[in-house]
């Protein structure tokens, strides 16, 4: 029997339809990752990098004290960003889904929240300068209210600024999936809870939050990967003072130490995949579309 006979016509049509997609992902996603893994075992000198099979890049990386502190710092950014994004994102989505009554208003307000997502992240970071700077709006306002006498130095170019910018940039990644899940909650469940005597808070904790969990998980996956791999927000908002895993990689790239950048990238990838694997246990993405 020929291959053609084994595979049905619809099967062939499907494959034909996805073949350009598969080719693009193969060359620009799978092959790059494989290349990084291979190059992480290569050697390098001041001028170039070349094929080899050494474990020095990993040995250096995994025994260095700097690696540990960088990971701890990045994890700190991630946890703080996640807490704020989840709290804010959930509240906003809850308001939109359960307190705004007309579908038109819901769509309009939802779009109002998502529009910044389609503008430049770099500009959105820059736009914090006049607000947080030494002579910025925040300091002037606090001084004129008499809360502080001296301008606060830690507003801009600090860990505070990094987390603030992360929340500003990425909170939409939480709002959108949580709103999407909440819109599918059957409103009669809430009425049933109310008829059974639950108060607003009990409805929230016993009905809405459990049913919103898949959305929260999807949002969390976005936030974890975006923050773990970030190098530009940390560099810009900390004024170059804070380290993060992504920044280490980008510095190694800048120094043309590709094999050691590749080793760092492999470790980062494993860390991120591990975290996602844990989170995916709580949600089936295919069901959520």
């Amino acid at each position: 029997m020929t291959l053609k006979g084994l595979i049905s016509a619809s099967e062939r049509t499907s494959w034909l339809l996805v073949s350009p997609l598969v080719l693009i992902l193969a060359f620009f996603l799978v092959l790059p990752i494989l290349t990084i893994v291979v190059v992480s075992f290569w050697n390098y000198n001041e001028f170039t990098f070349f094929p080899d099979f050494i474990f020095d890049n990993y040995a250096y990386l995994l025994t260095s004290q700097v690696t540990l502190s960088t990971y701890l710092k990045t994890l700190k950014f991630m946890v703080l960003t996640w807490i704020f994004c989840t709290a804010i994102g959930f509240t906003v989505a809850y308001f939109l889904a359960f307190h705004v009554r007309s579908l038109g208003a819901q769509v309009a307000l939802f779009l109002l929240c998502t529009i910044p997502f389609w503008t430049s992240n770099i500009i959105r970071m820059i736009s914090w300068i006049p607000f947080l700077g030494r002579n910025g709006l925040a300091n002037s306002a606090l001084i004129s209210m008499g809360v502080i006498d001296e301008p606060l130095e830690w507003l801009l170019f600090s860990d505070f600024a990094v987390v603030l910018a992360f929340v500003h940039l990425y909170v939409l990644f939480m709002v959108v999936p949580v709103f999407n899940t909440m819109m599918r909650i059957d409103k009669s469940l809430i009425e049933a809870a109310r008829d059974a005597g639950a108060n607003g808070f009990q409805i929230l904790t016993n009905v809405v939050i459990p049913l919103s969990k898949p959305g929260i998980m999807i949002g969390s996956i976005f936030i974890v990967t975006l923050v773990m791999g970030d190098f530009i927000t940390v560099r810009f908002m900390s004024g170059g003072q804070s380290a993060s895993v992504g920044r280490v990689i980008s510095n190694e790239i800048a120094l043309l130490q590709y094999p050691s950048a590749a080793a760092s990238a492999v470790v980062l990838l494993c860390t991120v995949l591990l975290m996602i694997a844990v989170m995916l246990r709580f949600v089936d993405i295919r069901k959520e579309l």
Binding site: L25, F28, L29, V30, L31, P32, I33, T35, I36, V39, I221, F222, T225, M228, G229, D230, F231, G246, I249, S250, I253, Y258, A261, A262, A265, L268, L269, V272, I276, I285
Partner: peptide, 21 residues
């Protein structure tokens, strides 16, 4: 899952990997 991976892979890996290739 490959499509999902494309979405959640840290961007710097794509940049580095494609650059290396």
């Amino acid at each position: 899952y490959l499509i999902i991976a494309s979405l959640i892979i840290p961007s710097i890996l794509i940049s580095l990997g494609v650059g290396l290739i």
